[in-house]
Write a protein that binds this DNA or RNA. Structure first.
Ligand SMILES: [Mn+2]
Ligand SMILES: [Mn+2]
Ligand SMILES: [Zn+2]
Ligand SMILES: [Zn+2]
Lengths: 135, 135
DNA sequence: TTCTAGTTTATAATTATTCTAAAGTGAAAA
DNA sequence: TTTTCACTTTAGAATAATTATAAACTAGAA
């Protein structure tokens, strides 16, 4: 994903491409593989990588703006911190609690044969599979 | 589960059956169906039910002690609070984000036909399925 | 009954996150 | 190009969940 696409991505979701947003978006979206992160880890990586310091509040603001725009997903991981995922398509995860590392599993790599029907007036929105790992 | 069993349950896991622990254990374990809760919700319910007030710190201590002893499981739910589950067997969940309600799914009610193999030197510890509900 | 390690408790501390409100800025309009 | 202003960034305060502290209490062994 090139810079022009980043600008389009931001503008088309009603987000002004400010210096900070572009820098964060480039860091998050200009990569081949999925990136899983917490605000803390993102902050550290950005601080290390870049010269210009971005306020922590801005990172929170930006991550939430990207999530609301559908460019990031929140992943539920045991623990206190909130995890985000640059892979916004429907998929599953391996989770290694030793390293707190998430690994993507393509939706097609898990096939569920039998599933219970949703209760009362409810419908199934989506199904998430977590595979916890050990050594 | 009767009172004597509660006492055994505590003692056999190295926990002194104090007044507070017995009261909390009775509240949590003397019921037919699985109970999912947060420390906050448990605290409210205990306050309503009982005459003797239990300190919030004691509820945290006790829930952690029960979890460590294997009498409670922690369930990962989106949001800030930590959820606990009296069902410590391997099972799955429906999750209704409208009501923040968890509903158990028996392990046998979900059959996974295809699953990827664990990465590098890792093994699969367990598989958890979350079915998110909508109206 | 005495004794003590384990437990409870009020309160302080910590940690992740959100709020606030003042200063800064992208970009539309003049 | 300059003006203008709604949107954005920011430092710091506030909040909320959880954990730590340390003094008072107690289960139960001796
Ligand atoms: Mn979490
Ligand atoms: Mn959670
Ligand atoms: Zn992912
Ligand atoms: Zn459950």
């Amino acid at each position: 994903m090139k810079k022009i696409d980043i600008l389009n991505k931001l503008r088309s979701s009603g987000l002004r491409p400010t210096k900070q947003r572009v820098e964060i978006a480039k860091f998050l979206f200009e990569r081949e593989k999925t990136f899983h992160f917490t605000v803390e880890s993102l902050n550290k990586l950005l601080t290390k990588k870049s010269t210009s310091k971005i306020a922590l509040a801005t990172i929170y603001n930006t991550v939430h703006a990207f999530k609301t725009a559908g460019h990031l997903n929140e992943v539920e991981v045991r623990g206190n911190k909130t995890y985000f995922d640059t892979n916004v398509s429907n998929h599953h995860h391996f989770y290694d609690s030793e390293t707190s590392e998430l690994i993507d599993i393509d939706a097609n790599d898990i096939i569920i044969q039998k599933i219970p029907k949703a209760p009362n007036g409810k419908k199934i929105k989506n199904v998430e599979v977590f595979i916890n790992l050990k050594n």
